[in-house]
C-alpha cells in the first residue's frame, strides 16, 4: 500500500518546525506504524536526508517510550494500542496521515517527534513509592489483599507512562497518569501509611507542570492501557481528604 505522510520536523527546541510531506510507497499492511517509519528513514538516509527522530524501544506496547499524534489522536486510531502496536492495516491505501509530537508545556520538544517527559519522574519522586528499605519487608503472605483490590490496583499500575493522556487532553493535564500512580498505591494496604502525604505531594507537583482536569475523558480513550478515569475520581477524593483530614492527631503541647 501507499500512504502520504505529513511529519513534524524540527531540528532543535529553539528552531522553527513545520510539517514535511513524504510519499511512502510500497509498504506492507502487516507492518507496524514504526516499521513504516523505519522504512521511510532508511529511504531518507539513502537520499541523504536526515532521518526522522522518534522515541521507541520495546515495540511491544509496554515500555511507554513511543508515542506520537497520528491524525489528531494520541497513538493513532486504534484504541487501547500504543503507537508501536498500531499496524498499517488500520489505514487506507492512499490515505494522508498526519504525525505530530506530543504537545504540552510539561513535555518540551527535543527534536522532530521526540519530547522530554521527565516531568513524570518528578511526579513519582513526590511520593509514587512505598517507603520500605530493602530487607525490612515482612513475609509476602502476611497481609491478605482481596483479589478485587489487588486486581484494581493492577489496573492502575498498568500505566506505561507514555504521556498519551497529557497529549490527548484538551487542557494538557496529567491527571490520569498521576491518578493511576496514586491509586495503585493508595488502594493497597501497604500504601496506607503514606496515603495522604503521597496524594498531596504528587497532585501538587503535577500541577506545576500540567494543566487541570475538566473531565473530558479524552485521556481514558487515548490510554494504551485503557486506564479508567474513575481513578481520577479516586484521586480527587483522596486529595480532598488529605487536605481536610486531621493527620497530626494532637496539636497542643506543653
Amino acid at each position: 500500500m501507499n500512504i502520504v505522510l505529513q511529519v513534524w520536523r524540527q531540528d532543535s527546541p529553539e528552531s522553527r518546525g513545520g510539517f514535511k510531506t513524504y510519499q511512502v510507497k510500497d509498504i506492507s499492511e502487516e507492518m507496524s506504524f514504526l516499521e513504516m517509519l523505519d522504512i521511510l528513514n532508511e529511504r531518507l538516509i539513502n537520499q541523504g536526508e536526515e532521518p526522522i527522530a522518534f522515541d521507541h524501544d520495546c515495540r511491544e506496547g509496554i515500555c511507554g517510550t513511543c508515542g506520537v499524534m497520528i491524525n489528531g489522536q494520541a497513538h493513532g486510531p486504534q484504541q487501547g494500542t500504543a503507537t508501536c502496536q498500531l499496524h498499517m492495516r488500520k489505514f487506507q491505501d492512499g490515505e494522508t496521515v498526519v504525525v505530530e509530537p506530543w504537545r504540552a508545556t510539561g513535555f518540551p520538544l527535543i527534536r522532530d517527534l521526540v519530547v522530554d517527559r521527565s516531568a513524570f519522574d518528578r511526579i513519582v519522586e513526590g511520593g509514587g513509592y512505598i517507603s520500605v528499605d530493602t530487607g525490612s519487608a515482612p513475609d509476602a503472605n502476611l497481609i491478605p489483599i482481596p483479589k478485587l483490590v489487588a486486581d484494581t490496583a493492577f489496573d492502575a499500575a498498568a500505566c506505561i507512562g507514555c504521556g498519551a493522556c497529557v497529549a490527548a487532553c484538551p487542557n494538557g493535564a496529567a491527571n490520569l497518569f498521576t491518578a493511576a500512580k496514586i491509586s495503585h498505591l493508595n488502594l493497597l494496604p501497604q500504601g496506607q501509611s503514606e496515603r495522604w502525604s503521597r496524594t498531596e505531594n504528587m497532585v501538587e507537583i503535577m500541577e506545576e507542570f500540567f494543566g487541570s482536569c475538566t473531565n473530558h475523558g479524552e485521556c481514558e480513550k487515548a490510554c494504551p492501557k485503557q486506564i479508567s478515569i474513575d481513578f481520577i475520581a479516586l484521586m480527587n477524593a483522596d486529595y480532598v481528604k488529605a487536605k481536610f483530614k486531621n493527620r497530626r492527631l494532637v496539636s497542643q503541647n506543653g
Partner: peptide, 30 residues
C-alpha cells in the same frame, strides 16, 4: 484561573487537526 492554567499547559498547540473521541461539544464549550 483554571483556563489560564490550561492555556499555559499547552503554549504550542497542535498544528494538525485534532480528532476527539470522548470530549463532546458540551465539555469543550464549557
Amino acid at each position: 484561573s483554571l483556563t489560564i492554567m490550561n492555556r499555559r499547559a499547552r503554549t504550542t498547540d497542535y498544528e494538525g487537526p485534532r480528532s476527539y473521541i470522548a470530549a463532546n461539544y458540551a465539555s469543550r464549550t464549557m
